[in-house]
């Protein structure tokens, strides 16, 4: 249970990171040119009308005052009201979060189910020139093709074939889980292309590194089967770097969801954030970005814990720091 000795410190660190991030997010949003009054009142409004609207929303207070007010409410779960809709941000977020969570979870599943086996395959078949070249080409394409390009191509292809709706058909998971899963299949695959390629590459490199370890050579010398060596010696030792990367890119998928949701017209967290940014809907932007930051911090924490469980040396190292 050495984990219990360093976990409280990590949790405290995570809390400090979140508070610091919230301040940065709040300030950054206020530094964006233009504001809600500019957008919603349009160019024809007078300066007085804009000022009146700013006062109505409390934007005439100092940024510090606004931040403390928002932070005080946020810790109680009240993230304010959307300036555009007048509805509580927490409620709007709760309505959209399940779709994004499902989209991201599906992308994680594709990443693990496709990326890890591909990496193992590539790592254990290095002798074949053709397969090595093909693997590199596929992984390079996967890493380098921007998701908005791929998403647009997929939308165009699906809308040109008689396969049913290509965009905007994603409903609420609670009402029709099967339909939602089906509709999220194309966007989740697009979202996962980068992470599959990156995970496959990382897994391949990790496997190659483990394969040259003395204990693997010893296993080969003992006449153990290839499958046994991979499952018992290679995978466990290669798991730490792969897990670290997978954890990081899982959090990054939320960023990718912003683009993919917009292109596939999915009403999730990403499209909510894009709409909020366009309107300078400060409460929406702050809450969405803070949520993404929280997910990132939590994923890092989970990876730390799991890595510590898999490799006690990491935990010791963490404690000594």
């Amino acid at each position: 249970m050495r984990i219990l000795t360093w976990l409280p410190g990590r949790l405290l660190g995570a809390a400090v990171v979140l508070v610091g991030a919230s301040a940065l997010i709040f300030a950054a949003v206020r530094f964006l040119p233009g504001d809600y009054a500019q957008i919603v009142l349009g160019p024809l409004a007078s300066a007085q009308e804009r000022e009146a609207l700013r006062t109505e929303f409390g934007f005439d207070r100092t940024v510090g005052e606004q931040y403390l007010l928002w932070l005080g409410q946020a810790v109680t779960g009240n993230f304010g009201h959307s300036l555009a809709s007048g509805q509580p941000v927490a409620g709007e977020l709760a309505a959209r979060l399940p779709v994004t969570a499902l989209l991201t979870a599906m992308a994680v599943v594709w990443t693990v189910v496709i990326g890890v086996p591909l990496g193992i395959l590539a790592g254990t078949r290095t002798g074949t020139t053709r397969s090595t070249a093909a693997g590199r080409l596929v992984s390079s394409l996967g890493v380098s093709v921007p998701d908005y390009v791929l998403a647009a191509v997929v939308v165009f292809a699906l809308s040109s074939l008689p396969l049913g709706p290509s965009v905007g058909a994603v409903g609420a998971p609670a009402q029709d889980l099967g339909g939602t899963l089906l509709a999220l299949l194309p966007p989740s695959l697009v979202l996962a292309v980068f992470t599959i390629a990156a995970t496959a590459r990382a897994t391949r490199d990790a496997v190659l590194n483990v394969l040259v370890e003395p204990h693997v050579s010893a296993a080969v010398a003992r006449g153990e089967t290839r499958l046994f060596i991979i499952t018992h010696h290679v995978l466990r030792n290669a798991a730490v770097p792969v897990l670290t990367l997978t954890g990081t890119i899982t959090a990054m998928l939320l960023g990718g969801a912003v683009i993919v949701e917009s292109v596939f017209d999915v009403s999730g967290l990403g499209s909510y954030l894009v709409q909020g940014l366009g309107r300078r809907d400060y409460p929406v932007i702050q809450t969405c970005v803070l949520l993404a930051t929280t997910v990132f911090v939590l994923m890092s924490l989970i990876v730390d814990v799991v890595t510590g469980l898999l490799d006690p040396r990491v935990a010791v190292s963490g404690r000594s720091r």
């Binding site: 939308v155 699906l158 809308s159 709706p165 290509s166």
Partner: peptide
């Protein structure tokens, strides 16, 4: 682009 796709696929 999405509106064009929706018109194309009949949604």
């Amino acid at each position: 682009f999405n509106r064009a796709a929706a018109l194309r696929d009949g949604s």
